[in-house]
Write a protein that binds this DNA or RNA. Sequence first.
DNA 1: ACATTTATGTCAGCCATGTTGACTTTTTTC
DNA 2: GAAAAAAGTCAACATGGCTGACATAAATGT
Lengths: 194, 194
Amino acid sequence: MADINVSLTARTGKSEPGAAPRLSPAPEGEPMLDLIELLFFAYRNFVSDPDEILHGFGFGRAHHRVLHFVNRHPGMRVTDLLDILRITKQSLGRVLRELVDQGFIDSRAGASDRRQRLLYLTPKGEALTQEFVAIQSRRLRRALEESGGDARDVVRRFLVAMIDPEDRSPTEKLIARADQAVEARSAARSRPAG
Amino acid sequence: MADINVSLTARTGKSEPGAAPRLSPAPEGEPMLDLIELLFFAYRNFVSDPDEILHGFGFGRAHHRVLHFVNRHPGMRVTDLLDILRITKQSLGRVLRELVDQGFIDSRAGASDRRQRLLYLTPKGEALTQEFVAIQSRRLRRALEESGGDARDVVRRFLVAMIDPEDRSPTEKLIARADQAVEARSAARSRPAG
DNA sequence: ACATTTATGTCAGCCATGTTGACTTTTTTC
DNA sequence: GAAAAAAGTCAACATGGCTGACATAAATGT
């Protein structure tokens, strides 16, 4: 951030030592200004890692999101992706077409319902997605290590609680289902006769 | 999220009960897929609150950021804002002009260096910014309450640790300086003779 | 069988917000 | 008096949102 030199109006130095403990009673509760800003800076860095890699392919943040969720839910429908991302069909269409055209995503017609296009990562897409997961996981792991023993649970609960109440349960279910599928696939790999 | 119906490939139901505890040793450490996704959903909701209000004024996310940091650092220079936001002068110029034109921000020439334009919120800008702080603080407060006793400290440490190491100290100093200025101003208000 | 609905895709155009590059004006500094 | 710094501006472009209108194929309901 190149050490910012904000010349404040209040240059008086230390604030009154025994200053009255908030005479204006902050009717709405304590403002969380530090957390608001930290979340901004942290998130910016968090998404910048994949951004840089993507840029080399001529892709952007939107492509990352698509790759990520297709990786997590192989065989998902286009509609499911629209529901998760909450963007329009047209917006998704653009990035999805690029990803399919350039061989990162495979779009196959559904077996039972042939109107559906089920989305899968190609090996190429899988490799790229692994990079993103790895780099973002590394950042998260390091941050949690610096934050104390049960940080992972606390942070997880905090993030869930930051989500709009009506979205929490669907979101948690979505994550659980993806995790379960990963387990199933890796179990399948360890008994290839399966 | 309207309960997403992802028909997974692995429809076998419950994953092997006594499945081997990860035969592939995850060379890069445990992937933090759940946190990656929770951060995405949480941040999206977090910024959507101000977004909706802004939309009524014909403003967007970029205006929010400018208002927020000018509120935190009254009298800051344009250069300081560019350093914090890390966008180009031209991008900032557009939103700043709109905010000044519509009377949310006051831009005054510096007293000691008259090349500088020092930025202040007008009462109108201050009122709007308070709304954003209030609504985002409320979300944060509620989330912390649901996350256990020392959640605030843990989350704060976590967010700091998520920031690129070279930016941490400047960022923390920035926040500390802003907090200190707030205290100084509110102390000044409680002794108006001052 | 036929009408309707669903899933997907596509064309065209608009908006917000980022970018680069070039250039000007004012003011300070060396 | 030259050089550097702070700010602003014009033009052009990219990304990724959006709306509206429409097309096609396949499933579903009566």
